[in-house]
Amino acid sequence: MSATTGQVSFDAAELAPRDRFEAWRHAVNAAFVPLDAHTESPAEFHGALTGLALGSLTVAGVGGDAVTVRRSRQTIAAGDPGVFKFALQVHGSSLTRQDGREAMLAPGDLVIYDTRRPYDLVFGGPYRMFVVQIPVEQVGLSAEQARAVVAQRIPGSAGLGALTSSLLGSLDGQLQKGEISPDPRAASAVLQLVQATLLSRFRPAGEVPTRDVVYLEAVRHIDDHLGDPELGVDAVARALHVSLRYLQGVFAQEGTTISEWIRHRRLERCRMELGDPAQAHRSVSAVAARWGYPDASSFSRAFRHAYGVSPGAFRRQIIGG
């Protein structure tokens, strides 16, 4: 077990085979809540965990070989911090059981379960999950809503589920690389999106989502389509099924416009790629075209205006050549 800048990491591969499963179980219990765990071949088990306190939330990536994890009445009595777990299936598959319901997850899918009541998690093969632990009082659901939504698969392929799946998947990648900063603002963004995703399960069809949710959906859509030269205000409004005026008002509240945000994100992507030695073989114009700037001269002007240097000069400063 190691800890760096508040991040906790455990890898059973560093231990003798006979000690790995029990050490992994102990690490999981310490990172989450007291749990029972069973695997067919403890001596051959490989598992790892990385966790971080993120404001009022705790996030963790956990994975390993086939295992069944159980939160029993006995383990609840041993320690009940009163949290919900909101989980993203990153790799492999899993089955979540709680309150007589079952949710079978594939990669990208989401589920929530309540640590105050018994549940089972069954992983039939190698897997990885990214888990957000949220204090009960911050979930934003009534007791009735909470009971209605646990152990239900939330598809990660459309709507708010897709947005949340994408965000948590990105956080999991950053966590593995040690790149997440324990910034309360990050916790707020995650919590807001989780709440919106859960509440959307109860929202009548056709109801307009909140401005915060529209903004997050728009930001994700823009990032996913930066390479499309036709990406603009109208395209984003159509994709989100909201009026142009409403969408413009959402971005105005954030102190920007959609066009400015698209330009900012495109330039940031170009700057990152121009500073990447692995992309040094790509011409400046090819990088610009990849991120939605088919005209090299307009890209050069926009880049110089944003960063005070031409794209070519920036690349030479960073990687030489």
Rank of each mutant, 00 (worst) to 15 (best):
A60H: 11
A53L: 06
G159P: 02
H221G: 04
R265H: 05
L88F: 09
F123G: 00
G64T: 09
D224N: 07
Q74P: 10
A189W: 12
P155T: 11
Q7E: 05
Y215L: 15
A280S: 14
A148D: 11
R71H: 02
E22K: 06
F84K: 08
L88C: 07
Q74T: 14
A146D: 05
R20F: 05
R220P: 07
R116H: 07
L95M: 05
D228T: 03
Q195G: 10
V8Y: 09
D19I: 05
R117W: 08
G100A: 03
D19H: 13
A12T: 12
S188W: 10
E14G: 07
D36H: 04
T96H: 13
S2K: 12
L105D: 04
S9A: 07
L226A: 09
G156C: 05
T257E: 00
G124L: 05
E254Q: 11
L198E: 13
E217W: 01
S94P: 08
M1E: 05
R147G: 07
Q248G: 10
T39I: 06
V122H: 12
D80H: 11
Q98F: 08
L141I: 04
F314M: 11
P229D: 15
R18T: 12
L57P: 07
V309W: 07
P126T: 12
E254T: 12
G156N: 01
E254I: 14
D276I: 07
G55A: 04
R201T: 13
T4Q: 14
I258H: 00
R153C: 01
F45Q: 06
R290C: 09
E207F: 07
E137M: 01
R265I: 01
R153K: 15
R301K: 15
T39L: 07
A313L: 02
I318L: 06
G82D: 08
L274C: 01
R301E: 04
R263P: 04
Q98G: 02
G140S: 08
V284G: 06
S165V: 15
T5E: 15
D172L: 13
E273H: 11
C270R: 06
H221N: 02
I222N: 11
L226F: 01
G227V: 04
A16M: 07
L15N: 12
R290P: 06
V69D: 05
D109A: 05
R316E: 13
G232C: 02
T58V: 11
L240Q: 02
L163V: 15
R271H: 10
V67Y: 13
Q317L: 08
A235K: 10
R73T: 15
E230R: 15
F32Y: 12
I134P: 14
Q74C: 03
S259N: 12
L216C: 03
A235G: 08
A162E: 01
F303N: 10
A103S: 06
L141E: 14
M104V: 06
R153D: 00
G320R: 00
P311Q: 04
D295M: 08
L226G: 04
I258R: 00
P311G: 04
S243P: 08
R185A: 10
A53P: 09
G156V: 09
